[in-house]
């Protein structure tokens, strides 16, 4: 029993390590690490001290974005740290840090020795990319308040806080499961056999199947949980976010992890929206609302105010 557990732990650690490491490998023995800093700087860390005369020569460095090799980005200034192992290249224009950059370095000179030329790939940590997608789907492009999807279920399930939380959790679980399956199906079946025109039919079937699957598994594995959350399962199919997420990840050609974080973000965003709306609607019950606005109309106005507030997230960028 113990060995199985430690085996799982090992796999988990390896997976997380793989996620972190993908951004750090450099391909040259003398270069330890590369990475972006702010929006216009690239930082290179060397294994040993480099010569100041070599480092201050701008002509030794040239960089471009991976998809556009013919657009060379100009280096404005180079700053060498006091222990001479860390080099900061400051570029003239802000860099598009979402894209991988290729950095060519001519003969690296270290204490009079030539360490050879290097061609480095500078990119954001993959983990950072995933977090950007997740937070983007949850807050910046919240599916309810900025994409206006899933409104039927949103207004139907936000009368009480307990209902809101139940629906949000069930939806997050099902959508994460369904989106991962949709990604696999799209990448390994639909695309290779050129059946992408069947996207809609396949994805809606897949979502219904995953709902049925989660239903069956939950009923057998944990009947108590099923009693609490089973009612919400049916409603997941009626939610257009559940079909929008697979379509989006197919349109954007996301990878498996990216699809998963998009689905997770969509679910969390839906949960946040539902919960906030339920809090307000519980208070609205006590408020004096004009009779013709009771119920749905006033809920729409409140949702509009939330949508205005969510516009404020549009400038947010974390990684």
């Amino acid at each position: 029993m113990k060995s199985i557990r430690s085996y799982h732990l090992l796999v988990g650690v390896l997976l997380i390590a793989a996620l972190f490491l993908t951004g750090c490998e450099t391909g040259h023995k003398f270069v330890k690490k590369t990475g972006f800093k702010d929006t216009d700087k690239i930082v290179i860390t060397f294994a040993g001290p480099v010569d100041e005369a070599w480092a201050s020569n701008v002509a030794n460095f040239s960089a471009y974005e991976k998809p556009d090799p013919d657009i060379v980005l100009t280096v404005k200034e180079i700053v060498l740290s006091s222990d001479k192992t860390k080099l900061t290249l400051i570029f003239e224009a802000p860099l598009n840090t979402g894209e991988a950059h290729i950095l060519n370095i001519k003969n690296i000179m270290s204490e009079g020795q030539d360490m050879g030329a290097a061609m480095l790939t500078v990119k954001k940590l993959y983990f950072g990319v995933l977090m950007t997608i997740l937070i983007g789907a949850a807050l910046i492009n919240n599916f309810v308040f900025t994409k206006y999807l899933g409104l039927c279920v949103f207004f139907g399930c936000s009368q009480k806080r307990s209902t809101a939380i139940g629906m949000g959790i069930v939806f997050t679980v099902v959508i994460a499961f369904a989106a991962t399956m949709a990604w696999a199906l799209y990448q390994f079946v639909l695309k290779p056999y050129q059946l992408t025109f069947l996207n809609i039919v396949v994805f809606i079937g897949l979502v219904s199947l995953s709902v049925q699957g989660v239903d069956t598994i939950l009923r057998k594995v944990n009947p108590i949980l099923f009693k609490a959350f089973g009612v919400y399962l049916v409603l997941v199919i009626a939610n257009c976010i559940a079909i929008a997420v697979p379509l989006m990840l197919a349109d954007n050609e996301y990878t498996g992890w990216e699809s998963f974080s998009l689905a997770l973000g969509a679910g969390i965003g839906f949960l946040i929206a539902l919960f906030m709306m339920a809090c307000v609607r519980e208070k609205l019950e006590l408020a004096k609302v004009p009779p013709s606005f009771k119920g749905l109309p006033i809920a729409f106005v409140v949702a509009g105010l939330f949508a205005l507030a969510f516009l404020g997230f549009s400038g947010l960028s974390i990684y």
Binding site: F145, T146, Y148, P290, P291, S292, F293, L296, P297, I298, A299, F300, V301, A303, G304, A307, L308, F310, L311
Partner: peptide, 17 residues
Amino acid sequence: PCAGFFVVGIMMGFFNW
């Protein structure tokens, strides 16, 4: 885009009225 919520809400209220 977010004005859609207000317009729909007010229209529904109007029809109820």
